[in-house]
Amino acid sequence: MALLKLENITKRFGGLVAVDKVSLEINEGELIGIVGPNGSGKTTLFNVISGVYTPEEGKVIFDGKDITRLPAYKRAPLGLGRTFQIPRPFSSASVRENVAIGAMFGTLADKVTVDDSLEIADRYIDLVGLEAHRDKASGDLTPVEKKLMEIARALAMRPKLLLMDEAMAGMNPKDIDDMVKFIKRIKEEEKIAIISMVEHIMRAVVGLAERVMVMNQGAKLVDAKTEEALADPRVIEVYLGQPTEQSKWRSEVWKEGKGEDE
């Protein structure tokens, strides 16, 4: 049984159809990517999954439960975690407290005390490599450190599925590579499913995701193995608009994707 199943999700804002009959499945432990240009509806889809929006049509089934109408805050204890493109730390709280909050209200919510949560937080802070900043106010971290902290916080929730929104936005190539390695590691060690959403930093899916769903104008364009999907002419056209750019695109993508760890 799939961990997350989206059945024909349609989300409208007034007359605008932001998400158009999108269906998707992801299994436990899978890492997939959602890719699409600006305005393709991927952020809206993410919001439907995490509960910020309720779709007009369709169902969201998580771990066998229909959570389509479930309030966002109730999805966390079920095992659904999320990070944001621009991190949202609790600025004046320390890094440790920030991450502990994930533990306090996530899947372990009723089983841990505040002190337990702080211990759990320590573990994940070490995992992401922020031990040195443990007691620093999270507002004082660099943007990359904030991202790592947010990941740690989400992991502290012990989720089954983690939604990562543009996890590599604003990073330089070296950081991106480190992040790719890191995400692979957590996928293996924590045994969680990950959906990585990406607009144009293809490195975030190439070499990382087994499958990719490409969206355009609210609808699913392609849903296939990563390499196939990105080589699909329709996808290239959507991104570049001109078939003559194909070869350039292909080489660019393969160059980005290959990286040093391949």
Partner: peptide, 9 residues
């Protein structure tokens, strides 16, 4: 919003 996704009501 950040609190919400962490599971805070």
């Amino acid at each position: 919003e950040g609190a919400r996704v962490c599971g805070v009501n």
